[in-house]
Simulated scan of single mutants.
Amino acid sequence: MDQDPSGWWRPEPGTPWQWQLSGDLDLTVDVPVYDVDHQVPQEVVDRLHADGRRVICYLSAGTVEEYRDDAHRFPAEVVGKALGDWPDERWLDVRRIDVIGPVLLDRLDACRDADFDAVEPDNVDAWANDSGFDLTAEDQLRFNRWLAAAAHERGMGVALKNDLGQVADLVGDFDFAVNESCARYDECDLLQPFVDAGKAVLHVEYGLTPAGFCEVAHRPGFSSVLKDRDLTAYRHVCEHA
C-alpha cells in the first residue's frame, strides 16, 4: 500500500478493509484500510493513522442528504427525486457542475484537510436511475471524471462507486472500485477491468448468511466483506476471500 507514483495513495488488490458509516465506530478491526464518513471527528482519522491504517473519506456526491449541514446550499432547481430506499436523500442534477460543484469541492477540501488518503464519492450513477432529470451517459461520465480529477488535484486517490455500466469508460480515471451487491445481481464480471488494470475492488454484500456469502466471496482481485445495510461495525470475511 505504498504511495502511488502519481502522488496519491490507492489500495492494492486484495487489501482487507472495514467500512463503517453508522453506529459507534469500532477502530480495533485488524485491517489496513478503513472507509468512514467524511464528517467523523478529526481524532478518528488521526487515531487510524497512528495505528498505521489508511483512511477513505465517504461522501455522497450525486445526492443531497437533508440532514447534512450544507444541504441548504443546493437550490431546488438541482434537486430531483428521492432515492427509493433512502427517502431523506434526493438525486442531484449532475449536469449542473456550476451549481453543485462548489459544495462538492468544499467537501473534498475538508477530506484533504482532515488528511484522508482517498475519497469514495457515492451515488455517481444517477443516469441509470429515476433521478427526475433527463441525464445521459455522457452527462454522468463528464461529472464522474470531474470528481476524479478534483480528488487527484487534492492529492487523494478516488474510488468509482458502483456505476457498473460505465466501468470500462472510467477505469482509467479512478484508482479503485467500491461495489455493493455485484454477486447478488450477477454483475461482478463488469468490474473485471479494474482487476485487469491491477486496481483494487472493495466489494460488499448484504443480506446473506455467512455461508452463502462465502460461496461468492472468492473472486481474484476482490476484497469482499459481508455487512449489514446500515453499515454498522458488523463485518464477516471468509478464509478464502
Rank of each mutant, 00 (worst) to 15 (best):
V167A: 01
E12H: 13
G84C: 03
E12R: 14
D115S: 14
A71S: 12
H38L: 15
L160S: 07
G198E: 06
Q42P: 12
L59R: 06
G101I: 04
A183Y: 09
D189I: 10
H218L: 13
K227P: 03
Y234R: 15
C111W: 04
V204R: 11
G7C: 03
C238A: 04
H240P: 10
D130R: 15
F222C: 06
R142Q: 13
A211F: 12
A168Q: 11
G221Q: 01
L105Y: 13
V171W: 00
A118N: 09
C188I: 08
R53V: 10
A82S: 13
L170F: 01
L170E: 02
D169T: 05
S6C: 12
P5S: 08
G23Q: 05
A168Y: 09
A217E: 01
A241C: 15
W9A: 05
L164H: 09
T232L: 11
H152Q: 01
R112S: 13
D93M: 03
Y67A: 14
T136I: 04
F174N: 07
L48M: 08
D46T: 13
R142I: 14
H152A: 03
E180F: 06
L141R: 14
D4E: 14
V178C: 09
F143S: 01
G221V: 08
D37S: 13
V29P: 09
T136Q: 05
V225M: 07
A217G: 02
D113K: 11
A114H: 13
N162H: 04
I97K: 09
W17K: 09
D2W: 14
S60D: 08
C111D: 08
A168N: 06
D88T: 08
G14P: 03
F116W: 02
V44D: 02
F133M: 03
D230S: 14
Q166W: 01
T28S: 15
G62Q: 00
E89Q: 00
V79M: 00
G7Y: 01
Q192P: 08
E66V: 15
H152G: 02
V40M: 11
D69S: 14
P32C: 05
E138Q: 13
Q42L: 14
R47D: 15
H72K: 13
S131M: 07
R96T: 00
G23Y: 08
S22Y: 10
L160P: 06
E187D: 11
Y206L: 05
A211T: 15
P41W: 05
R54E: 12
P75T: 02
Y234L: 12
F222M: 04
R145M: 05
V79G: 01
L83A: 03
D169A: 12
G172K: 04
L25F: 02
H203C: 06
V45T: 03
V36P: 05
A50N: 10
N123M: 02
S22G: 11
S181N: 14
E66D: 15
A50L: 09
Q192Y: 13
L108S: 08
G52I: 11
I56P: 09
P87S: 00
P220L: 05
V64N: 07
D88Y: 10
D51S: 13
D93S: 00
E89A: 01
